[in-house]
């Protein structure tokens, strides 16, 4: 069985574990860097990106997370996780993991009262996916290697680059596990490639 970690410093950790298990993989809450060695793929959950980054620094997670990705192991960033994966963040010079070639805008759809649910078409995943956006970011620009998977109101809200996957919404908050399922398949494929 695939072992998929959820970075458990802060945020919607339990919901992602539930979604991973529903997709037929084993979910592991990752709080220490040593645990990265036990897992085949990692989800960076939604939460407060500023808070998560502080805790990532505090516990020296940044370099181990970058290395995890560089080994070819898949990482899926949702909402705050998407911000952490990006190579460029609007209105700041901060870069966190910098693993996916894209420019993101934080809280791009507005404050909490503007948070919304919408049906999305996600390329290769679903024609009508119920996506929950909470103080969500969007992707303003993508690099040549980054594939756009979904858009809402003309803004990019999901993308993929090799073994990296990112979305601006919260797949863990609904019972539709198709996107997590898609990630589990990416992890299975990478495990085969890495083993050969």
């Amino acid at each position: 069985m695939m072992k998929i970690g959820v970075l458990g410093l802060q945020g919607a950790v339990r919901e992602h574990i539930r979604s991973i298990e529903a997709s037929g993989a084993e979910g592991i809450i990752v709080k220490k860097t040593a645990q990265l060695e036990q897992i085949d793929g990692l989800i960076i959950p939604g939460g407060e990106s500023t808070t998560m980054r502080r805790l990532i620094n505090k516990y020296e997670f940044l370099e181990p997370l970058r290395q995890f990705g560089k080994q070819g192991k898949p990482i899926f960033g949702t909402c705050a996780g998407l911000i952490l994966l990006a190579t460029e963040i609007a209105e700041t010079t901060d870069v966190h993991l910098g693993s996916m070639d894209m420019k993101v805008v934080r809280n791009a759809f507005g404050r909490q009262r503007e948070s919304f649910e919408a049906d999305l078409a996600i390329k290769g995943v679903s024609d009508a996916y119920n996506a929950v956006f909470i103080r969500a970011p969007y992707i303003a620009e993508v690099g040549a290697q980054t594939e756009i998977l979904a858009e809402h109101q003309g803004k990019i809200v999901a993308a993929k680059q090799g073994h990296y996957l990112a979305c601006a919404f919260h797949p863990e908050l609904t019972d539709d596990h198709q996107l997590t399922d898609h990630f589990v398949k990416m992890v299975e494929a990478s495990k085969k490639t890495l083993a050969s």
Binding site: G11, A12, G47, R113, S115, I134, T174
Partner: peptide
Amino acid sequence: VGTDRVKRGMAEMQKGG
């Protein structure tokens, strides 16, 4: 906007904080 999922979900993102 303003659905239970969006409102409760916002609090879910604060967990552990």
